[in-house]
């Protein structure tokens, strides 16, 4: 390095900036992001609360990718075909709405357009509305409980079968603000079943042969692209379907 020698500082002790303790503390700068996550309700305020609360979830998931909960791909295919044939329309689409469905919808009270503020944050895990998570993330839990209790609409089942290189059904008709329980399985290789929602997408992975269930409610009518986001072979780019929400 070069530079004119011009009277270096000779007063005082070592600068704070050249002390090891300061460097060590500054190195932890990005870790402070946890505070923002907690403030947004995306992580427990006390990070040590991560442990213990969800042990039941750990046990539930111990089956790993290989576990199918008793549903083989062949059985899922049969169930999906039966379900979709039952709800198939003359144009080939599958329509699952409360009026046409025949599924049990207890206490049904179809909401009108709900106030968005009362809806849970997209992608928040509703399974965490039990007592465990309630203590960890009050802000999230409150909104989730508000939505689930106010609407009192039980989810309708929807079956989506993913295979190289298509979805069944290829056109799905749903109702806005109606909760749906999507039951999905990739039967031949891992696939994605992601939904493009305008400004962004909701990405879903489907490991091969695993039943994946997801509760989803669309809050805006429109046409949405359902597409594969896991590379699944040469026809990957052709693997898409459409969801029409009325």
């Amino acid at each position: 390095m070069t530079g004119k020698p011009a009277g270096p500082r000779q007063d005082g002790r070592a600068s704070l900036s050249t002390r090891r303790g300061f460097i060590a503390a500054a190195s932890l700068g990005a870790v402070s992001l946890y505070g923002l996550w907690a403030g947004l309700g995306a992580a427990p305020l006390r990070f040590w609360d991560l442990g213990g609360a969800d042990m039941s979830d750990m046990e539930m998931s111990s089956g790993g990718h290989g576990s199918t909960g008793g549903l083989s791909p062949e059985e899922f295919r049969r169930m999906a075909e039966e379900f979709n044939d039952k709800h198939r329309q003359t144009d080939g689409s599958v329509s699952v709405t409360p009026a046409e469905n025949g599924q049990s919808v207890t206490g049904m009270e179809m909401p009108t357009e709900p106030d968005n503020a009362a809806l849970p944050m997209p992608d928040m895990d509703m399974s965490e509305t039990d007592g465990h998570a309630g203590h960890q993330m009050p802000s999230v839990t409150e909104t989730e409980q508000a939505a689930s209790h106010d609407s009192e609409v039980l989810p309708l089942e929807v079956y989506v079968l993913a295979q190289q290189w298509s979805f069944d059904p290829s056109l799905l008709r749903l109702k806005a603000y109606q909760p749906y329980r999507f039951r999905m399985m990739a039967v031949d290789a891992a696939h994605g079943a992601s939904i493009q929602l305008g400004s962004a997408s909701h990405i879903i992975r489907l490991p091969k042969g695993a039943l994946v269930e997801r509760e989803l409610s669309f809050t805006q009518p429109g046409e949405y692209l359902l597409y594969c986001t896991i590379y699944c072979g040469e026809g990957h780019q052709f693997m898409s379907a459409k969801i029409i929400v009325a």
């Binding site: 199918t68 895990d125 509760e215 989803l216 669309f218 429109g222």
Partner: peptide, 21 residues
């Protein structure tokens, strides 16, 4: 913050994510 604001504006409420059972 930007990413969370986009997430919150999506016209979708995603609930229980379960798998492999």
């Amino acid at each position: 913050l930007v990413a969370f604001s986009i997430l919150r504006a999506l016209p979708l409420v995603a609930g229980a994510a379960t798998g492999a059972h």
